[in-house]
């Protein structure tokens, strides 16, 4: 008979082999329950395996586990657990680290809370008046002394190529441009790159990016260059001042990092807030979300910019000017453009 016992034995052996392969499954899914202990362990492991600044910030994450593990109780309320987990995350001193719950968002904001604001919205509103133009996320106007002013408050706001065409064309006869990105907390890196491309005349490597290649704290890929390609559309050639303060974070930090290499650009104001780790998201068994820095971005000299970028011209907002309705930093920028010209 064609289908003899050997055939059936072979089939049985095949199935057995298949079952053994399944049993020795190469995927190890964490078995978390929704308890305080498991939520703590899940959060600690997520950060342990994915966070990218342990060594740079000299954080001993194992000792953090030892300290906070002892404070986890089985009957903790959600609020108590949140406070403890958020306190643990604060040790990372990272504005990109957030624990989001239905009742609160854990955050580290000392990168701007501990410094002068260097920004007053009423001064901006007074400067722009009511006859300014709006191009998607940008408000812009030609000031009395023939200097163009752009207020861009959020890199998440739309920034299309045609928007930039119109804005640059409107400032074609101006002596220079002030780009005010103070209090801009970031957004899309693609917007940052698109905006910066209007001020470069040749390709330039403005920084590098790395990513984790494994769970070890120092498992990183080789730095990969991040370059700005000059826009093939309208490019601005006259002096440009970028206004910064401590609330320039994340994609805005990236924008400032690129713009400081553009040939006609001066960075003026306060140090930026930093935030150079491209954030990833994850979650805890109880459904809370956690955001964390996953891919470090470096400047053109391969230095960390996680804690901010110093301006070329440091200027603070003076109280005396504030009382007179003047923005010290904008006035300094106008003066700088006149000096350059």
């Amino acid at each position: 008979m064609f289908l003899n016992n050997r055939f059936f034995h072979s089939v049985a052996a095949g199935f057995t082999l298949g079952i053994m392969l399944l049993a020795s499954s190469c995927v190890d899914i964490p078995d978390y329950n929704n308890t305080s202990r498991d939520n703590f362990e899940a959060l600690w492991s997520i950060m342990d395996e994915h966070y990218c600044f342990f060594e740079y910030k000299n954080v001993d994450w194992d000792s953090i586990h030892t300290v906070y593990s002892q404070r986890i109780g089985n009957d903790m309320s959600s609020e108590s657990l949140f406070l403890l987990l958020n306190e643990m995350l604060q040790t990372l001193q990272d504005g990109h680290v957030n624990l989001s719950t239905p009742f609160d968002v854990g955050r580290y904001w000392k990168w701007f809370e501990d410094y002068p604001a260097n920004y007053d919205q009423t001064l901006i509103d007074g400067l722009l008046g009511t006859d300014y133009r709006i191009a998607s996320g940008m408000r812009y106007k030609v000031l009395d002394d023939n200097i163009g002013y752009i207020r861009y408050a959020d890199f998440s706001s739309g920034l299309g190529e045609s928007n930039l065409d119109y804005v640059i064309e409107a400032f074609g006869l101006c002596d220079g441009i002030i780009i005010d990105v103070r209090n801009n907390g970031g957004g899309l890196l693609s917007n940052s790159d698109r905006f910066a491309a209007r001020f470069f005349n040749q390709r330039d490597t403005v920084g590098y990016i790395r990513h984790k290649t494994g769970k070890g704290h120092n498992d990183f890929s080789a730095p990969y260059p991040v370059s700005i390609e000059p826009s093939t559309r309208l490019r601005y050639q006259k002096p440009v001042i970028v206004l910064t303060n401590r609330s320039c974070f994340s994609a805005t930090n990236d924008f400032v990092n690129a713009m400081r290499r553009a040939p006609t650009v001066t960075i003026l104001g306060d140090k930026t807030g930093g935030g150079s780790g491209l954030p990833f998201n994850s979650e805890l068994p109880n459904g809370w979300s956690v955001r964390f820095s996953a891919c470090p971005m470096l400047d053109a000299a391969m230095r960390q910019i996680e804690f901010g970028i110093e301006p070329d011209v440091p200027v603070d907002l003076r109280k005396e000017d504030l009382l007179e309705g003047k923005d010290t930093m904008i006035e300094a920028a106008r003066q700088k453009i006149k000096e350059i010209n």
Binding site: H50, C52, L189, I209, H211, K212, T213, G214, K215, D219, S221, Y224, V226, L278, F280, A294, C295
Partner: peptide, 11 residues
């Protein structure tokens, strides 16, 4: 790769 973002792949 393990922690590679799609932003990097896009570059």
């Amino acid at each position: 790769e393990y922690g590679q973002s799609y932003y990097e792949i896009g570059l």
